[in-house]
């Protein structure tokens, strides 16, 4: 066999083995549940890599803030006078002190939220730093620095002082993956706080951070500016994953057609999903088995 054809064979063999290995991993990972052996291996791997992720996150924070600051400036050019005033105010401050102030304020708001009446009584808060964001346009998710050792389990709700962020979908010992409300698979029972109109908050297709309140009956009244909060239902031994009354967003448009069964209600979320630095995982005080 010539060296050229043996080189080609070697190449094909190498890539074939790697592709096969990837497919085996996908199959095992997809097939194994939360307690599967591969999940444990993945959990151990994630725990081992966690210090690197945390370190990189901390090193990157000033750059991320600078990027956010520049991004905010670009966005502000097309917005109203309020944002221009905000930009002028931002320019007056030194960038580094601004970062410190923002972080301080964010944490204070979380503390106020914890001590305030809006925080659900049946839950303990677990504060967690955002340490990763899965790549690609397929999943709207974050990875936070709290895991099973902090009492976090899958399906625990996640909030900030602004409102609902999402729900925990996977947990390792020291980290957890949180599915954001803007993910295609996220769905939350919600009510219009003013009128009590019920519906389900879903991600609006074709957008990145807009939500819709779906399944609102035509006879129910929903108006622009109404606040949408979690419904937190409980029936026949079943309870909603989300506690009652967590703010989700504000109604920005309401429409209906003769052919549709339900109203079309668009909701602007209170949470800035692109700018999350820290969140609170709500751990139930008493877990139902």
């Amino acid at each position: 066999m010539s060296s050229r054809s043996s080189g080609a064979l070697k190449r094909r063999l190498a890539v074939g083995v790697l592709v096969l290995l990837s497919l085996v991993l996908v199959t095992l990972s997809f097939g194994s549940g939360e307690d599967g052996s591969l999940s444990r291996v993945q959990s151990a791997g994630a725990s081992a890599l966690r210090p690197f992720a945390v370190g990189a996150e901390r090193v990157a924070q000033p750059f991320r803030d600078a990027y956010g600051w520049v991004d905010g400036l670009v966005g502000a050019r097309s917005e109203a006078e309020r944002l221009r005033a905000e930009v002028r105010e931002l320019r007056q401050r030194a960038i580094q002190s601004e970062f410190a102030l923002q972080e301080n304020e964010y944490l204070r708001r979380l503390l106020r939220y914890l001590d305030g009446p809006r925080f659900p009584d049946d839950f303990d808060p677990v504060a967690a730093e955002v340490i990763g964001r899965p790549a690609g346009a397929f999943a709207q998710a974050i990875v936070v620095s709290a895991g099973s050792r902090d009492g976090v389990v899958a399906q625990d709700p996640v909030v900030t002082a602004d409102g609902l962020v999402g729900i925990v979908t996977r947990v390792s010992r020291g980290t957890a993956r949180v599915q954001l409300l803007t993910d295609q698979e996220a769905a939350v029972s919600a009510v219009d706080l003013r009128t009590g109109a019920e519906g389900i908050v879903l991600h609006a297709r074709g957008t990145r951070e807009t939500l819709v309140l779906d399944r609102v009956r035509k006879q129910d009244v929903v108006r622009l500016g109404d606040e949408v909060v979690t419904a937190g239902w409980s029936t026949a031994g079943l309870t909603s994953l989300y506690p009652k009354g967590i703010p989700i967003g504000k109604v920005t448009s309401v429409g209906q057609t003769d052919t549709d069964l339900f109203q079309q209600v668009q909701v602007d979320p209170y949470v800035d999903f692109g700018g999350l630095d820290a969140v609170l995982v709500l751990v139930p005080k008493e877990r139902t088995p």
């Binding site: 085996v24 996908v26 095992l28």
Partner: peptide, 11 residues
């Protein structure tokens, strides 16, 4: 591993 995504997909 870092993002707790389905193992093998990105690979």
């Amino acid at each position: 591993l870092l993002t707790l995504d389905t193992l093998g997909v990105t690979s």
